[in-house]
């Protein structure tokens, strides 16, 4: 149990926690626009944390370079995809949920 394994484990489980919280948020939030918040933020951050944990475990090699490419791609692509989804719902005329409405 050296220090690198511990640091990578901390990153790994922090990321898992945020991804799990994002799933709970997607289930609990009342309407589509507020479900976008956990999908766009929690998932982006969660995957970055898990994959950075794997990079720390692996050390410097081709494998961690590939992991870095995946992290950077999802960091750019995931907010863009959620933005496209929100835009499609907005064009279709979906009204946002107001406080006091039924859940």
């Amino acid at each position: 149990m050296d220090i690198r394994t511990i640091v990578s484990g901390v990153f790994l489980f922090t990321g898992c926690f945020f991804m799990f919280v994002a799933s709970i948020g997607i289930i609990r939030f009342p309407d589509f626009y507020s479900r976008i918040h956990p999908a766009g933020k929690g998932d982006t951050m969660g995957q970055a944390m898990v994959l950075i944990g794997l990079m720390i475990y692996e050390g410097f090699s081709f494998v961690s370079l590939k992991l870095l490419i995946i992290v950077i791609f999802i960091l750019i692509a995931n907010p863009t995809a959620t933005h496209a989804l929100a835009n499609a719902a907005y064009v279709a005329g979906l009204k946002p949920w107001k406080k006091g409405d039924k859940r």
Partner: peptide, 24 residues
């Protein structure tokens, strides 16, 4: 900012009363 916003989301999703008040 990403780290702060994740703690924000975790707080709002796990809080039993769900303190959200959305607007556009």
């Amino acid at each position: 900012q990403i780290i702060i916003s994740n703690f924000d989301i975790a707080y709002r999703a796990l809080h039993p009363k769900m303190p959200i008040d959305p607007c556009i």
